[in-house]
């Protein structure tokens, strides 16, 4: 995406000379401006002692805490160990959601009967807050890793499933018919025409799903966890260690954003035609 996207027409030569000299800011520069402003505001509020550090610790304290957490840790584990525990759960859940969601999404997008069959189930569980069915999962599957990963898996599954089904269902009919007239079997049609055609949607579904996965992390790590960023934040909250809470939030946001950026890059590389007029 470029910063110029919102400008519909631009005729540089008609600009006055005073404006022509100024170079437009890059997207990254715009982002840095917003991040910088927020941090500055945060610092100003804490420096003015308007708000006690218990409610909002100063940026400096949080940064110092980062050092402590990396070296000596919190709740018997370093920040890296917490992060690793959470990442493992997210990645495991993501892989499972992709392995289940894509084939099932293809079936839903291809066969109306499968769609009619599964639609109510998906639409039933999808809007439920994970905390609502968390007790059931614990009762059925215990308090081990399985329950934690399952909760995140369910959050990622719905968007992957829905996006795949939509992508498969919206592959242009003439493209499929043309392929059939060139001798494509059902399997070849799926492999060479439908799946690549649905790929942009599938990747978008994975991106949205991953976001949903992160947002259930804290709920998942309510289940008798001893490690994980969600667990770290909850324990810190119980003891009012606000700087660890803030730090945990920032780390989750940064890691999630890094993964999102990676996926966007992957999407651009794998589907460069997406968004082109033809």
């Amino acid at each position: 995406m470029s910063a110029n996207e919102h400008i519909l027409t631009r005729v540089p030569d008609t600009l006055p000379a005073s404006q022509r000299a100024r170079r437009p800011l890059s997207p990254t520069q715009w982002s840095l401006i917003s991040i910088g402003s927020i941090t500055l505001l945060w610092w100003a509020i804490t420096a003015s002692s308007l708000v006690p550090a218990l409610f909002l610790p100063p940026p400096g304290d949080v940064l110092a805490k980062f050092g402590t957490l990396v070296s000596s840790g919190y709740m018997d584990a370093t920040l890296q160990q917490h992060l690793w525990a959470s990442l493992q759960r997210i990645v495991l859940a993501l892989l499972a959601a992709v392995a289940v969601g894509i084939p099932l999404g293809i079936a839903i997008g291809t066969y109306p009967r499968v769609r009619h069959l599964l639609d109510p189930l998906i639409e039933f569980y999808r809007p439920l807050p994970p905390l609502a069915y968390l007790p059931l999962i614990v009762i059925w599957f215990g308090i081990g890793e399985l329950s934690k990963v399952l909760l995140i898996f369910l959050a990622i599954l719905a968007p992957v499933l829905i996006a795949t089904a939509h992508g498969v269902g919206s592959v242009s009919l003439v493209r499929q018919q043309a392929a059939l007239s060139l001798g494509a079997s059902r399997g070849q049609l799926l492999r060479y025409v439908i799946l690549p055609g649905a790929l942009p949607d599938i990747l978008t579904g994975i991106r949205i799903g991953l976001g949903a996965g992160w947002s259930t992390l804290v709920a998942a790590e309510l289940i008798a966890a001893t490690r994980g960023l969600g667990f770290m934040i909850q324990s810190a909250a119980q003891f009012l260690v606000t700087d660890v809470v803030v730090l945990g939030i920032i780390v989750i946001a940064l890691v999630a954003f890094a993964l999102e950026l990676g996926l966007r890059r992957l999407q651009r590389r794998l589907t460069p035609w997406h968004g082109q007029t033809h």
Binding site: S172, V174, R175, Q177, A178, L180, S181, L199, Q276, H278
Partner: peptide, 18 residues
Amino acid sequence: APGVERAVVFQHDALLPW
């Protein structure tokens, strides 16, 4: 059914952009 001896050409959208 469709068959290889009868190839179809459409107005647009039928090529594979990947």
